[in-house]
Amino acid sequence: MQSLPILPPSSHTVLVLGGRGRFGLAAVQAFARSGWRVLAQMRPGATAPQVQGVQWLAHAVDTTAGLEALKADARGATVVVHALNPARYTRQAWERENGPLLKAGMAVAQALGATLMLPGNVYNFGQSMPPVLMEGAPYRPSMAMGRIRTRMEEELEGATQRGELRAVIVRAGNFYGQGQGTWLDLAMLKGIQSGKLVFPGPLDVATPWAYLPDLAQTFVQLARVRHSMAPFESLHFAGHTLAGHDWVQALQDVARQQGWLGEDQSLEVAGLPWPLLRLVGPLVPSWAALAALRYLWKQPHRLDNRRLLSIIGDEPHTPWPLALGRTLQHLKLLPLAPVQVHTLVTQP
């Protein structure tokens, strides 16, 4: 393994755990662009993405030897971004893996004396969640994954109260804009080039979406001012609040531009077969996990970010038409040339 350079005390160093994942890679890129020294953990045998100025550390976090080697090679890191996720999106994998993964991240951060930062979601609030999710709102999880996330965050907060480490959670809506495995590529856009769109909920219900480059840049800005914050912070990233009609209007515009639809044609919009997901769920655990999320598409909600704004001033915010165009380019649905996407967007 390449030895790490000795840097002056003023250097900013971040360690990103799970640096090859959707959010992990966005964080790696954002910190690198902002001039940080970036160390990125990946599993042994994985191929390191090409990101200029990033040092990749191939250490397993689920073995004692791998964890100790990671602590040694990450010396000097003052921030640890926890972007580790279970191998599969199932309740069973979450129950088995999320706790140990968090403990590993906490152990690394504690050993380095670093602030631990991790992305959160809205699962904690449950089906009774209000339409505006305030920072500090009580948790009432109504499904297994929400209860798992709540336990994780309570464990993390308890560690900060005991003085073991400092931590920041940044809660966000549906991820998009980087990587595979999101609602967009798995369901919504699979038939877009044939003029078809799948939307999982009612078209008039607005929900929060997190463009990953913006979310990652928010982590960078918070990392810069981490010493001014309390030992534990749970903050909300507002992102884009979008209804199904916003998606239909914007994607229909794109489909006509690209010749997937005629000028007088409209997108064929279908819903997700939720009853089928529930029916097959006992046999296909990943479908059961998705079926448990149906309420998030039926209940309008948005994330109130006023506490976040009081700390960093402005939330990084790429205009949604531009974010959508870049997302479609990333998914190779559009060429890399500039794309015009005109739409009326429902904003928070």
Score class of each variant (00 low, 15 high):
Leu17His: 01
Ala137Gln: 13
Arg88Leu: 14
Gln193Asp: 10
Pro200Gln: 11
Arg20Thr: 15
Pro316Val: 04
Ala83Arg: 04
His236Ala: 12
Ala114Trp: 09
Trp287Glu: 02
Pro282Asp: 13
Pro321Val: 08
Leu276Cys: 06
Pro275Gly: 02
Ile312Met: 10
Pro44Ala: 06
Gln52Ile: 01
Pro130Leu: 12
Val205Leu: 02
Ala77Gln: 06
Leu293Ile: 05
His317Asp: 05
Leu283Pro: 06
Leu309Ile: 02
Ala159Arg: 10
Ile148His: 05
Ser234Cys: 14
Leu70Gln: 04
Arg307Tyr: 11
Leu84Asp: 08
Arg96Glu: 15
Asp253Val: 01
Glu68His: 08
Trp36Phe: 12
Lys71Ser: 06
Trp287Lys: 09
Gly21Asp: 02
Leu156Arg: 00
Leu215Thr: 02
Pro100Cys: 04
Leu112Trp: 09
Arg20Glu: 07
Pro119Ala: 14
Thr90Trp: 02
Pro282Leu: 13
Pro44Asn: 04
Gly181Arg: 07
Asp185Leu: 10
Trp247Leu: 15
Trp274Phe: 07
Val14Lys: 02
Gly113Ile: 13
Val80Asp: 00
Ser266Gln: 13
Thr343Pro: 03
Glu154Trp: 11
Val81Ile: 15
Phe23Met: 11
Lys196Asn: 04
Asp246Ser: 00
Leu118Arg: 03
His330Leu: 01
Trp183Leu: 12
Lys103Cys: 08
Leu308Glu: 05
Arg43Ile: 03
Val339Gly: 00
Met134Thr: 14
Val254Cys: 09
Val61Leu: 10
Phe125Val: 00
Val16Trp: 08
Thr78Pro: 01
Pro282His: 12
Ala46Thr: 14
Val54Ser: 00
Thr78Gln: 15
Gly99Trp: 12
Ser310Asp: 14
Pro138Leu: 05
Glu135Val: 02
Val339Leu: 12
Ala337Trp: 08
Val345Asn: 06
Ser228Tyr: 09
Pro275Asn: 04
Arg75Glu: 13
Ala250Gln: 08
Pro119Cys: 02
Pro300Arg: 07
Arg302Lys: 02
Glu153Val: 13
Gln52Asp: 11
Ala323Arg: 05
Thr241Pro: 01
Glu263Lys: 12
Val122Pro: 01
Lys190Pro: 00
Val132Phe: 11
Val339Ala: 15
Gly19Met: 09
Asp304Arg: 10
Gly163Asn: 08
Asp62Thr: 07
Pro321Arg: 05
Ala40Asn: 10
Pro348Gly: 13
Leu102Asp: 07
Pro335Gly: 13
Ala250Pro: 12
Ala77Asp: 03
Ala270Lys: 14
Gly179His: 03
Ala111Leu: 06
Ala255Asn: 13
